[in-house]
Simulated assay, not measured.
Amino acid sequence: MSVKIRLKRTGMKKAPSYRVVVADSRSPRDGRIIENIGWYNPRVEPSAININEEKALGWLKNGAQPTESVESLLKRSGILARFEAEKSSTSAE
């Protein structure tokens, strides 16, 4: 089973907001999820990103693959850099 960190669309028609969720890669975009780890609102300026860092790092350590859009959100919030730093420090030991 492949687990992905991806966006689930919420909000009204023509006014999207998104939840950052962990889901099975085979489930539909707005289908069953495993865990909700944050949200993203592109409609405000600057766009609002709120991701639970500990949950995201835990899922990344367990092998969950972020989609391209979630990967860019994780980079913008600094979570991906922290994950890479922890990964390189454990491999150096």
Rank of each mutant, 00 (worst) to 15 (best):
G58W: 02
W39N: 10
N50I: 05
K75G: 02
E45T: 06
N50R: 14
N52K: 15
W59A: 04
I79H: 08
Q65H: 10
E35N: 01
I5G: 02
I79V: 14
S25K: 14
I37G: 08
A23M: 06
S72N: 14
L73C: 11
G38M: 03
R29V: 11
I34L: 15
D24P: 05
L57N: 09
I51V: 12
I51Q: 04
R26K: 15
L7W: 03
G63A: 13
N41E: 08
K4V: 12
A56G: 09
A56V: 03
V44G: 00
I33V: 15
K13F: 08
D30E: 11
V70H: 01
V21T: 14
R26S: 12
V20E: 00
I51N: 01
S25F: 12
E71I: 02
D24V: 10
R19F: 13
N62L: 12
A81E: 13
S72G: 13
I79W: 08
V20N: 07
W39F: 11
E71L: 15
R82N: 11
W59V: 04
G38Q: 06
A48R: 14
P28M: 03
S27D: 09
Y40S: 05
R82T: 14
K61H: 12
I49L: 09
S27I: 01
K14N: 15
L80C: 09
N62Y: 00
I37Y: 05
N62E: 15
A56I: 09
N52D: 15
I34R: 13
E68K: 09
P66C: 10
Y40W: 04
Y40P: 01
E71T: 15
T10G: 02
V20R: 00
E54C: 00
I34G: 10
M12N: 10
E53M: 08
S69D: 10
V20M: 05
P28G: 06
S77Y: 01
R19V: 10
G58Y: 05
S47I: 03
V22N: 04
G63N: 14
N62A: 15
I33H: 02
A15S: 09
P28N: 10
L7Y: 06
T67F: 04
K55C: 07
S47Q: 14
R29G: 11
E35K: 11
V3H: 10
P66A: 10
N52G: 05
K8E: 04
G63Y: 12
W39D: 12
D30C: 02
R19S: 06
R32C: 06
N41A: 02
S25I: 13
S47L: 04
G31V: 05
L74D: 03
V70A: 00
K13I: 03
V3Q: 08
S77P: 04
I51T: 07
L7C: 03
T67K: 05
A23V: 11
G78K: 02
P28D: 07
P42G: 05
V3F: 11
N36I: 01
Y40V: 00
G78E: 01
N50T: 08
V70W: 05
R9H: 07
G11T: 08
R9E: 04
S17K: 10
Y18P: 06
N62G: 13
R76K: 14
K4P: 00
